[in-house]
Design a protein around this nucleic acid. Structure first.
Lengths: 255, 255
DNA sequence: GATGAAGGTCGACATTGTCGACCGCGTCCC
DNA sequence: GGGACGCGGTCGACAATGTCGACCTTCATC
């Protein structure tokens, strides 16, 4: 394989750097963070700015991500076949379950949320499309880790941070959890990622029967579980039905 | 000014090409569309793929936009100060007006929607964040064209397509419309972009009193206008109040 | 008004991306 | 069935290209 294009790799690194740091970054920050000469970093930033991928605050001279990224990210959603097929089914899932519905795919070391349907009530909610979730602690992530070999190695080799007191961090426990997930065909997250929040997810397959994503719901643990602390079977059934429906829509045939 | 980086410009052109065409594109399509040698296009695509900006369909070999763009677009929203300040006010605007609320900024030759609050009812709506709207026919666009010199030249020099029978296309009429907008301090769009849809928008200023965006509402013309076909003053007031509130939040002071 | 650090420019250098010919594979059509 | 086309992808020579580090200007600080 011939070598990748250096200037592009560096441009991508700059964009990721700008995306990571909360605040705007100056030219010198960017150059030193990536070990580049100032002139080099400036040339890349200037081109990125010209193309709209980066914007510069006129007064401070600092850089931040540009609007073109939002436009392209939206175009990505338009083309995304899995998301298009899942739109109507996740809508039904949110309505029938009364909780927020999510569609996630593997991206780098996490789950990228590509679709999110708000919980059907009038509460104020923030859209999480484009956000990342950890593989090891969320229901969506566990499903991907259990069924997608690439996701599995990312989750197994990556760090498993203890996000709450209930997060499973040890390798053996995590593998046991994935075995359970494969045996049941779905995964849960009982306050392992956020205190008070539980979620349920199931895998989505494409026409070649390969796992390509996961759908799930997420909500307050008091609603997702019954009085004994057990996950409500009705919700599990709704999630699995939705996953099957989307898979069928993708051409995976019946199970 | 030293020259921009060629490979980056080409990579950006490829991404825009992939964003524009509805379907996936093959290597040869990309190369011939941009007048590049196949080897060159392949090198850029390979690097973009490695960085997650482009994905390749394993069976057809065709390319489409990648998930990293969604993630970065989301990060752009996180950093966007105008959007952050407008979140709560646009929420109020949607609630008080009963219509969808939008926040738009100038981007290239159009209005980029950076925030969108659904109309507060249970109807199925699609999120338009990341979408582009024309400058010459929408209320948001007219506000920007009226107050932002850059937007004005883009709108004046660009093509003004007749999207409906009521779209204003002639240069003189358009300038008159902008004069009216400046005189009133707000703009309207009465079925000039989509049949049956009317919208109202007002400008948002930053701490230097420069126009940086526009907020507005959009809805069925029957609801936005009264029985005589006149725009409901209550809605105009709500939009202008919201624009003032956001401007104040940005440090523009009182008017 | 000296100082330092910021963003930005410049020009020499050789690294680096580019080009077009070439490869292997699948498909379509004789 | 076999040849020819078109596809995605590779290769290596060449020089155009991006890179580097010294330098400039500006601004805030002391």
């Amino acid at each position: 394989m011939p070598g990748p294009i250096q200037s592009l790799e560096r441009a991508a690194a700059i964009l990721r750097l700008l995306a990571g740091g909360e605040r705007r970054l100056g030219l010198s920050d960017v150059a030193s963070s990536l070990g580049l000469a100032k002139g080099t970093a400036h040339g890349i930033l200037r081109t990125l700015q010209q193309e709209g991928f980066v914007e510069q605050d006129p007064v401070s001279g600092k850089y931040q991500l540009g609007a073109e990224l939002l436009r392209l990210g939206n175009s990505f959603l338009d083309v995304h076949e899995l998301r298009a097929r899942a739109l109507v089914w996740t809508d039904d899932l949110a309505r029938s379950s009364g909780e927020s519905a999510y569609l996630g795919v593997l991206h780098q070391q996490g789950v990228l949320i590509v679709h999110h349907v708000f919980r059907p009530d009038d509460s104020r909610q923030v859209l999480e499309v484009g956000a990342m979730q950890p593989l090891h602690s969320t229901a969506l992530g566990k499903v991907l880790a259990a069924y997608d070999p690439v996701a599995h190695s990312e989750a197994a080799e990556g760090e498993r941070a203890a996000l709450t007191g209930r997060t499973v961090t040890s390798a053996a426990d995590f593998e046991a959890l994935l075995d359970l997930t494969r045996a049941r065909g779905w995964a849960a997250d009982l306050e392992e990622t956020w205190e008070g929040v539980a979620s349920i997810a199931a895998p989505v397959y494409d026409r070649r029967r390969m796992p390509v994503g996961a759908v799930g719901i997420s909500g307050a643990v008091e609603r997702v579980c019954d009085d004994d602390g057990a996950i409500r079977p009705r919700l599990v059934a709704a999630v699995r039905d939705c996953a099957r429906a989307v898979s069928r829509d993708l051409g995976a045939g019946r199970f």
